[in-house]
Design a protein around this nucleic acid. Structure first.
Lengths: 136, 136
DNA sequence: GGTTAATCGTTTGTACACTAATAAACAACC
DNA sequence: GGTTGTTTATTAGTGTACAAACGATTAACC
């Protein structure tokens, strides 16, 4: 059997990711990247937590989450404070501005998801997401 | 309906991509990245071509393919030469070493694909790849 | 109480990925 | 044959993503 790049899961995953990124940026109003968006939504879900924990809950490396937190802080969506009970930790929480955009983020996220999955029917989406999750 | 990050296609795609990357690196012997691998396999499929065309055929930006070509050249897998008919172009082609590893790359790629898709049955893989392609 | 181990955050280095700008070369066309 | 527009390659800047190493702190446990 011939090896064809266009049939390989890794290559196609990269393409799908690229398309999703384009759709995301097209609709993005707040100037967030997909990664920053994920971190921000996660803080909204979890509430305040340490930087490292936030990284684990968003599947980001310590070096990666560091940069993401720095940029979210610079954009005013989060605030940082020392943990009173553990001097190693930095507590990350939503700023007032951050709290104010959570609903907007959810609406935005739904639009992106909808357009990304638009080539699939409702039934197919369920099946697809189910299988994709098993590949994580 | 509540918005949950863990149910969003963009987030799950990122996770699936991460897992694939880990599997890829685990098996990688030649020290190639997924992107370098794709470019090298593509040159093997297409034969010699310009740097920009290679980028388009591997879904890489001009700036991205530039770096990938530089690194593949540094590793000795490809060679660069000026296009006699078009002074703008740089022709990219496999070096002798590059030709020598193509079969190995294919075997390696099949192993990575197999392990990445291992959570799915044979029937599911077909359905899944079919749907994933529609999202590119 | 003191050693050992684990965790937290930071930094460095390499490698994609995209945008935008630039310059050189080529093609189309009147 | 000169203008117009496209293609090719390069560069600079921003933002993930991972590995590896580091110091500071905390936890475990004898």
């Amino acid at each position: 059997m011939v090896y064809r790049l266009d049939e390989q899961i890794g290559y196609i995953l990269r393409l799908a990711n690229q398309r999703h990124g384009l759709i995301f940026n097209k609709h993005s109003e707040l100037g967030l990247t997909p990664t920053q968006f994920a971190a921000l939504v996660r803080i909204g879900e979890m509430g305040a937590c340490s930087q490292n924990l936030l990284g684990r809950r968003t599947a980001m490396d310590v070096a990666t989450i560091k940069g993401v937190v720095t940029r979210l802080k610079a954009k005013g969506f989060i605030q940082l404070s020392p943990d009173p009970g553990d001097k190693r930790r930095t507590v990350v929480s939503l700023s007032v501005q951050g709290q104010g955009v959570i609903d907007q983020l959810h609406a935005f996220g739904e639009k992106v998801t909808e357009e990304t999955l638009s080539p699939l029917s409702e039934t197919e989406r369920k099946v697809f997401l189910d299988m994709l999750k098993r590949l994580t």
